[in-house]
Design a protein around this nucleic acid. Structure first.
Lengths: 230, 230
DNA sequence: GCTCGTTTCAAACGGACGTTTGAATGATAC
DNA sequence: GTATCATTCAAACGTCCGTTTGAAACGAGC
């Protein structure tokens, strides 16, 4: 009856994945109904449960389809730099390039859906749904420690905890820059130039490096007068 | 029958707003049912429609309750610096302090719900729902142009477009740092120290300033080999 | 041409959703 | 005590949700 683990019927499966990916970006997971997905994909409502098993499983497959490739690309970029360095610590800009540069290049690919997926991924970092969070944690388990270690070696004078915070901030700036394009208009009236998908990368990479290498704050916090919220 | 515009019944209204705020952060707008909200608030299901009119109106009131105050605090902080400067351009760190410092101080207020609200606000920047986006745009219309202009004056050597991008990146780093605490654990195993709510501010502000003042990229993009996504 | 496993399809399932209703309750003014 | 208002309450409304079902259509192997 069912063929949940099978690889058959490439057409229907791919059509569903494409439609779901686009609709998840547009409306979020909860607000995207299976009837909306199957309607856009031009397939029968029951096709999702037949091919994927459930809506949750579909969501996971939407991520798996591209995230595995993305993380492998990040790792191989890092390893290429490490081979070039021959045992010496990498430069910070190389590590940032390997992780964020690869991501931004995928986000610049509007032809094959990479752009849509990266918007979805950025949105999802703030998604509270438990099973999505767990899934992302598993997918990142292999790649994050490698980048952490590379950063520790590249910035021996910066406390490791500070590096982790800054990695977190960089991830946020990128995710938001990709996922929150509406907010960009809100703030500035700017719009992403579709003709030049590399523009974001050219703007963002210097910002990330500037933040990563910012001087450390002194031991005394420089906040002024803590104030209560209303 | 209805008293949608009235200010009566402070207790029920506030209980609903508090419960909704917390649950929206935890589950998102769509996944938070009115039965869940009223159950947590200890009020009758019909109370939301009676006091607010609809679920959408409740969502807007959850934001309005704190966002108006936040934006006024941002503006007054900016104006205080401008008065001190007496017509001279502000320092970048003052502008960043006025906008992001005020926000982070609200996010550090765990006692009066400011922390919960700032997490919700951060989440919402990537929320695609149309009416929420429009609402946020209206609320920010008065404050954003003021900060834009202050930044243009503070950084006369940086192209205005570049400044807008970097403001966008800073907003992303902060939103994500506040809203995506789960992702922080994912990346690093770090956890926010509840005992020291100022920690985030002390870490984030130098990062934001480092990114804002980062050297401009040369006219020639330094990307290497554009690659297609699978 | 028949068989068998895979895929598609229309229809229905129980349940949860946001909203509405009309009566009960409570408090205030006369 | 009675009238008047705002508020609370249990119950029900119609709709949409994710999922399941059983039959129809399809396609490859013999």
């Amino acid at each position: 009856m069912r063929a949940i683990d099978a690889k058959q019927s490439p057409d229907t499966r791919e059509r569903i994945l494409d439609a779901a990916e686009a609709l998840f970006v547009e409306h979020g997971f909860e607000a995207t109904s299976m009837r909306l997905i199957t309607g856009r994909a031009g397939v029968n409502l029951a096709a999702i449960n037949y091919h994927f098993g459930s809506k949750e499983a579909l969501i996971q497959d939407v991520f798996r389809r591209r995230l595995t490739w993305l993380n492998e690309a990040r790792l191989s970029a890092l390893e290429r730099f490490e081979k070039e360095a021959g045992g010496a610590p990498l430069k910070p800009h190389q590590i940032v390039e390997a992780f964020f540069g690869v991501s931004l290049r995928m986000a610049a690919d509007t032809a094959h859906g990479g752009h849509t997926f990266m918007r979805l991924l950025g949105r999802t970092y703030t998604e509270p749904s438990a099973f999505v969070r767990q899934f992302l944690a598993d997918e990142y388990a292999a790649v994050v420690p490698r980048f952490k270690q590379a950063l520790f070696r590249a910035l021996p004078d910066v406390p490791p905890e500070e590096i982790l915070w800054r990695f977190h901030f960089m991830l946020g700036a990128m995710s938001y820059a990709i996922a929150g394009t509406d907010a960009l208009q809100l703030v500035s009236g700017l719009e992403l130039d579709e003709k030049d998908p590399e523009a974001l990368s050219r703007r963002l990479m210097p910002f990330l490096l500037g933040g990563l290498r910012a001087p450390l704050a002194g031991p005394a916090a420089k906040t002024r007068n803590p104030r209560k919220a209303a």
